[in-house]
């Protein structure tokens, strides 16, 4: 796994973005950018050559699930690994995200260990494929 990979963190709450950013830095990932919803994230993804997307679900403007669907529908971005970090914890929502092609799903509140485990798993699968 490349520690220099470019990561976009999307969450409408700046505190949560800070927490995720700090956790990622603890894990060795320092090349991060932030966006506060899908509408701001999508153009950044299209031009920014990101390697990994970490997104919340519930955001004003464009929600995370719609951002995920837009990423998968875009031929340039369709293979971008996406980790959803969200408080949405209903069965049908998780199934919806899985069907939309999410690579990992972390429910809030979460721990640093959970985040690390999910990121490791996502990149293990990608490297094995």
């Amino acid at each position: 796994m490349d520690k220099d990979m470019k990561i976009l963190i999307v969450d409408d709450f700046s505190t949560m973005r800070r927490i995720v950013k700090n956790l990622l830095r603890d894990l060795g990932f320092t090349n991060t950018s932030e966006a506060d919803d899908g509408i701001t994230a999508l153009p950044m993804l299209k031009t920014g050559k990101f390697d990994f997307l970490v997104t919340d679900w519930n955001m004003p403007g464009m929600q995370g699930i719609d951002l995920l669907k837009a990423v998968r529908a875009d031929p340039e971005l369709s293979s971008l690994p996406v980790l959803m970090v969200t408080a949405e914890s209903k069965k049908e929502q998780i199934i919806e995200a899985a069907q939309a092609g999410v690579n990992g799903y972390v429910v809030k509140p979460f721990t640093a260990a959970t985040l690390k485990e999910k990121i490791d798993k996502i990149f293990e699968r990608i490297e094995a494929a």
Partner: peptide
């Protein structure tokens, strides 16, 4: 299926994942 925000009463709803 849309965002609902955090589930407050998880015990009473079998569709909500507890963690």
């Amino acid at each position: 299926i849309t965002a609902e925000g955090p589930q407050v009463n998880q015990e009473d709803n079998p569709d909500v994942m507890s963690g």
